[in-house]
Write a protein that binds this DNA or RNA. Structure first.
Lengths: 216, 216
DNA sequence: CCGAAACTAGACTCATTAGTCCAGAAACTC
DNA sequence: GAGTTTCTGGACTAATGAGTCTAGTTTCGG
């Protein structure tokens, strides 16, 4: 009773996935043993194999599920600014949101794991790419296209502009943290400074210089 | 005779390192077996252990040596432009050089390997970071500082500007290739287009607008 | 409360691993 | 060419891996 309407079976299923997440993220695919996994799940080895047919299946299932929900609710398509003055705060907010989502130990470890297994599981890496960067860039491109329509930005190729902004924001922190470990995750203050600079560079390069155009 | 003055011992040493490179880059640390490595080296297992004390030692030694020579001769400090018109071609060339060095299967696989082993070998990842991105950015910062002195760029913080340019150039291709595999390495033509856009964005954001300043 | 399904503990198979040991062969040094 | 170092190949240890099997126990739906 209490708050759990989960069947015992479902509970075990979840426990296995939780243990798998902890172990795979920490020890890698080959470094994780099914015995340890079963023990940590509080479940017998046989049960693990009943729920997931093999180590590979479990791994793929886990990573796929973690990957899928990765880049949700970003880039609120509502309230896209229609005034030039709102551009900087808008992209500032966008950058902060994106960093807050991506720069978490969980997602960073997932990324390390998947990158390390590219040759063994190329599908997983591709899925992570499509659900992560590619999706962010796509939705960002839509926003930029709208802003071009409104005459607030000048970007002949919105997808390219979106790629530029995406990596202006994420590249430095993500690549640093990939190699230096989770302790290198920037503080909120550092993220703000970085977001401000990224926004400034982006807007300098892509803003429609209507003001200056008028003077010509 | 012929061209090799290498002693038999030295030749074997090199053969082991070559096999280690091939295997570790392809199979990862745990995925590489010392038996296979000895066989591939054309050397007995015992010899492997005489030359390198253990699997760990061999791995660390290999990765360290590959890491060390990674980011050589980049950013020729001579002939830094002193005319505004030379800025774009100069950074264009810089970007192409940097991509050509980094975007090779060998270095990309090394990067994947090291990222995947961050929790097992944090020193190696740190070394790769310091010898790679950090060093590039540092030498780039020196160039930028000089250009600021000459009045060609405006960058209150040259290190930040260097970081921005570095990732403007490398982030998109490197992160894509990390996940999509070596087949995703961009063609020279694609690199040129990317380098041009990166250079444009960078110069728009950091060039000294002496022209416009005069108009004020 | 009964029968089926899910689960348990632990033994078991078979393959593989890092690293050691040994007796003889080959390669260098003087 | 004698003596020393290096190397070979294969046997060996001790551990660990994924996955299976079994016999008994728990859980759950009807």
């Amino acid at each position: 009773m209490s708050e759990s309407f989960e069947s015992s079976t479902a509970r075990k299923h979840r426990a296995i996935l939780e243990a798998a997440e902890a172990l795979f993220l920490r020890e890698g695919y080959l470094g994780t043993s099914m015995d340890e996994l079963a023990e940590r799940s509080g479940v017998s080895k046989q049960t693990v194999y009943k729920h997931f047919g093999s180590k590979k299946v479990l791994f793929v299932e886990l990573v796929t599920s973690m990957t899928a929900g990765a880049s949700d609710n970003l880039g609120e398509l509502d309230r896209i600014p229609d005034d030039e003055a709102d551009l900087a705060p808008y992209f500032m907010q966008y950058a902060m949101d994106e960093m807050r989502i991506v720069m978490t130990p969980r997602l960073l470890r997932l990324r390390r794991l998947v990158i390390g297994e590219v040759s063994r599981f190329p599908e997983l890496a591709q899925a992570l790419f499509e659900n992560g960067p590619q999706q962010s860039i796509q939705s960002l491109a839509n926003i930029i296209a709208k802003l071009v329509q409104r005459g607030l930005l000048t970007a002949p190729n919105p997808a390219a502009a979106a790629t530029t902004l995406n990596w202006l924001v994420l590249a430095a922190p993500i690549n640093e943290t990939m190699l230096l470990g989770d302790d290198a995750i920037p503080t909120i203050a550092a993220m703000k400074a970085h977001a401000a600079e990224a926004t400034r560079v982006f807007l300098t390069a892509y803003a429609s210089d209507t003001g200056r155009d008028d003077l010509r």
